[in-house]
């Protein structure tokens, strides 16, 4: 249960299609200010176009970050609990016992749907447990939700 590549636990990594899905969102956020900068630049000074370079740098850095983050995002279903790891710079391993799950939520926005992936979010009675798996193929997400729900039902412990 660690972040290191040497870890021999049977991690299931999230779908790589999460990378294009996130990149589209990222580049939309880069493109909108880029258009604004271009318009302002063409009306005023050419120096404003320097902003485009800054935006491009941010976009490229973000792209690299998305690659790194998605390839670090994985989960394991164990006997009693689900383990999720994510992040590269700030890394987290979260252990959520099935008996503590209040409900499971499957969510997918328009871009996620276009790529056939979904986000599975687990809720416990604690506001602190931030347990979500992004980029799970839709069929797998449904299966995961049902399995988590049935395991949660079987092991549900009172607060």
């Amino acid at each position: 249960m660690t972040w290191e590549p040497s870890d021999d636990a049977a991690w299931t990594y999230v779908s790589r299609t999460l990378i294009p899905a996130r990149l589209i969102t990222l580049w939309i956020w880069v493109a909108v200010p880029a258009i604004i900068v271009s318009v302002v630049g063409s009306l005023t000074s050419r120096w404003v176009f320097a902003g485009l370079i800054a935006l491009a740098v941010i976009g490229l850095w973000g792209t690299w970050l998305v690659f790194r983050q998605v390839t670090a995002h994985a989960w394991i279903e164990r006997e009693d609990d689900l383990i999720i790891k994510r992040g590269r710079m700030w890394r987290t391993v979260t252990v959520v016992p099935y008996g503590r799950m209040q409900y499971v939520e499957v969510e997918s926005g328009p871009i996620d749907r276009a790529f056939g992936i979904a986000k599975v979010q687990l809720h416990t009675a604690s506001p602190g447990s931030d347990a979500q798996i992004a980029g799970v193929p839709t069929a797998e997400a449904e299966r995961l939700r049902d399995r988590l729900a049935s395991r949660g039902e079987a092991q549900l412990a009172g607060l």
């Binding site: 710079m89 700030w90 416990t124 009675a125 604690s126 607060l159």
Partner: peptide, 29 residues
């Protein structure tokens, strides 16, 4: 132990360099 909701181990970049990590026990609100 029976009141533990979930657990997390976290590590920031500085902690990573020094081989240090935090463990958080999630309790209710």
């Amino acid at each position: 132990h029976e009141r533990t909701q979930s657990l997390a181990m976290t590590q920031g970049p500085l902690q990573r360099v020094r081989g240090v990590a935090d463990v958080t026990v999630h309790s209710t609100n």
